[in-house]
Amino acid sequence: MTDALLSVRNLRVEFPTRRGVLTAIDDVSFDIMPGEVLGVVGESGAGKSLTGAAIIGLLEPPGRIAGGEILLKGERIDNLGAEAMRRIRGKRIGMVFQDPLTSLNPLYTVAQQLIETIRTHADISESEARKKAIALLDRVGIPAAARRIDDYPHHFSGGMRQRVVIALALCAEPELVIADEPTTALDVSVQSQIIDLIKEICAERGAAVMLITHDMGVIAETADRVAVLYAGRIAEIGPVRQVITAPEHPYTAGLMGSIPTLTQTDARLVQIPGAMPRLNAIPQGCAFNPRCEKAFDRCFKERPAPVLRDADGRKVACWLYDAIDTPAKEQANG
């Protein structure tokens, strides 16, 4: 696994509070290959966005990385100094946020924000940067880019602003783009356009994408692999086809069952009973045990680790699949 672009190893993110330390992300590991699209799904509060923030080094204090490591092309980036990390942000890892209406500084024109960002990462002249900015805006689908570039953000619609945000995230040609719910705040009609644009433009530049969303449909269409997060832990991770068509973890199965399909004849959608536990009340053993229909003794006592299930690299953290004689367990822990 040394050829991974991004490698997250046993990541643990904590929030020290007055009432004790809350663990928001606990022992999360995954890899992103160059050019790959990894979908990260989960309910609100599952730690999706926090994982993204931890990777790019923008955890809000008092949140901190308490354990594990993050490697970018084999080099650790979780313990870099502020200045070294700043050089990685934008240049090697780009980020697209959820709400395009608030992601752009209202007091500067699109040109000013683009040119500033381009010139932060590349030693080129103002006019060269401007040319590059116009070309980028053109590429992300802003009509009449050369004229619109001098407009302020409030002159653009939501979808157009998200295109500008994508241009900004990509203007230093990063190897990895973290898209944190890039379509949640947009009209349904433009959501797929934006997703397609992210996918296309990243493929074109060979950039990998970490697509954070709670929309399984988006994942199914876009991602190569998917990681399902629950209460700050990985429940299941693997190639998108397998995970979607044959989910193994009861939580993933529940998620899949809750998506309406055109052919479905049942009167009601399947619903997972209960709610995700709060960070200060994560149960012992498997975090999903209070909501799991298949839970048995062991689930309440020991916490399952993600175990390799097949040759395609699917891992599931569930005691249901733990046969004592499986050699896979050792492989996953090692």
């Binding site: 923008l58 700043r86 050089r87 934008g90 992601s103 900004l168 230093a172």
Partner: peptide
Amino acid sequence: KFARARGLS
């Protein structure tokens, strides 16, 4: 946050 994520000083 976005400005920081773009690596501005």
